[in-house]
Amino acid sequence: MKNNVFEHWSRGYIIKDHISNKNIEVGDYTYYSGYYHEKHFEDYCVRYLSDDIENVDKLKIGKFCSIGSGATFIMAGNQGHRFDWITTYPFFYTPDLNENSRDGWQKKGDTIVGNDVWIGSEVIIMPGINIGDGAVIGTRSVVTKDVEPYSIVAGNPAKFIKKRFSEEEISMLLEIKWWNKDIEIIKKYINILCSNKIKEFYNIIKNI
């Protein structure tokens, strides 16, 4: 594709190396595979409705996340669209119509994505959502509610499908927070990370 910032459909990049917007925070090793939408993550995926950079909600993404092409984070609240008023039209922001109007701006809060989260291609995440560590979001899902750690959700709106592991195993993973360990420790135990041996991994990592 002409002017595509990605070399090939199989190539992604580490997001934090390509972020200039101070309202976007991304952890180490989190990557974006954006070939089919051609543009950088912050240019295509993060949709701010306001240019007031001091007042908008933030997008915070943890470490070791995998984000598919065209995933979209809707940011900056409703920008004056109030569905509890008679009209949703933003008169306050419309020249020639804003006299006597009220500002419907409402912040929704920061959008938080945990660590080791897999977000499929063309997922839409609405403002103020909190996605827990280890969650998986199915392709083209529309996420309108918080997602619990190590849950799989999919659909429009996204609905709970199942937990990835047992509650005991999830508790172990949330306790050790392997993504916060020194990268040399992570490298040493990648062979176990690439398995389902959670208890074995927990017993190794818990005291490191």
Score class of each variant (00 low, 15 high):
2 K>V: 06
3 N>C: 04
11 R>I: 15
12 G>F: 04
16 K>Q: 14
18 H>I: 01
24 I>N: 00
28 D>F: 12
29 Y>L: 10
31 Y>W: 12
32 Y>G: 08
35 Y>G: 01
35 Y>H: 12
35 Y>D: 01
37 H>D: 03
42 E>C: 13
42 E>F: 10
43 D>R: 04
44 Y>N: 05
45 C>D: 08
49 L>P: 05
51 D>E: 14
52 D>R: 13
52 D>F: 01
54 E>T: 10
55 N>K: 14
61 I>A: 00
61 I>L: 02
63 K>H: 12
63 K>G: 11
66 S>M: 08
66 S>F: 07
71 A>K: 06
72 T>H: 03
73 F>E: 00
78 N>K: 11
86 I>A: 14
92 F>N: 11
94 T>M: 09
99 E>F: 09
110 D>Q: 04
112 I>S: 06
112 I>F: 11
117 V>S: 08
120 G>Y: 00
122 E>Q: 13
127 P>N: 05
128 G>M: 09
129 I>V: 09
130 N>K: 15
132 G>K: 11
132 G>P: 02
133 D>F: 07
133 D>A: 03
134 G>N: 02
135 A>Y: 06
138 G>T: 10
143 V>Q: 02
144 T>R: 13
148 E>Q: 10
158 A>C: 08
163 K>R: 14
164 R>S: 10
165 F>H: 15
166 S>P: 00
168 E>D: 13
170 I>K: 02
171 S>M: 02
175 E>F: 02
175 E>R: 01
176 I>Y: 00
176 I>D: 03
176 I>T: 01
178 W>L: 11
178 W>S: 10
184 E>L: 07
189 Y>S: 11
190 I>L: 14
190 I>R: 15
193 L>D: 07
194 C>M: 12
195 S>F: 05
196 N>E: 15
197 K>M: 04
199 K>M: 09
202 Y>M: 04
203 N>W: 03
203 N>F: 02
205 I>S: 05
206 K>E: 05
